[in-house]
Design a binder for these strands. Structure first.
Lengths: 111, 111
DNA sequence: CTTATATACATAAGAGCATTATGCCTCCAC
DNA sequence: GTGGAGGCATAATGCTCTTATGTATATAAG
């Protein structure tokens, strides 16, 4: 995460959410998708991303499968089946947290 | 920050925003205010708070003044005058960041 | 009187997660 | 043949949080 170092700990959530919506993605693809969705404002650094992916894999949240595409290796990640509900819970909590934060900061939703 | 370890780096922003709105506050008061505003969901730990206050003071963002109230020492903090605009900028960025995050997480504002 | 709870500040140890800086490799356009 | 884009990875460093602990006063409960 580059432009604004405000939020740490968000990266895991972003990864899980994207994998929930897109079945499977590889690292570079995730960086581009986040950049797109945020109008170029959220830039995930590679160091942070790959560490996070490895950690989530180690924790059993993700499984990986490497494939060769156009002569280059891609490592696709997807959610492990059992973690579906956990992702939902996480997203629920994160949403609640953002709302509480908006209340504290007095940032009305929609502004 | 307790209940949800999602966001790190938010505490400084919270402190600055509260001091912008309330002229001056002391540490314990800040913990209670955040707890209130978040319906008991955001619990600032004392270790985090006092470290953050000391850092902001060291950076020249805040100035402190100790007073004795009811026999107990209170350390009131307030923004340094020159930092008014910086706080505005910070809050602006943070608001933008939250919105981008909502876009990436596909959490529609207001939900 | 003593104990618990609330008020109030502070610091140290440790962990977690990010940035920054590298490194390695391939494909393709100029 | 050089540079940029695609693609993965790790090490050093630093910031910020949690957890634990310490100090101290006021007040209510027993």
């Amino acid at each position: 995460m580059n432009v604004n170092p405000l939020l740490k700990g968000t990266l895991q959530t972003i990864i899980l959410k994207l994998l929930e919506d897109n079945t499977r993605m590889y690292g570079y693809e995730i960086t581009q998708k986040v950049k797109e969705d945020s109008a170029g404002e959220l830039l995930i650094t590679e160091g942070a991303l790959y560490s996070a992916l490895h950690k989530l894999e180690g924790d059993g949240m993700l499984k990986a499968k490497t494939e060769i595409v156009d002569g280059r290796a891609r490592k696709y990640y997807m959610l492990t089946p059992k973690e579906g509900k956990e992702v939902q819970t996480k997203l629920h909590e994160d949403r609640a947290f953002i709302i509480h934060l908006q209340n504290v900061l007095n940032l009305k939703p929609g502004l």
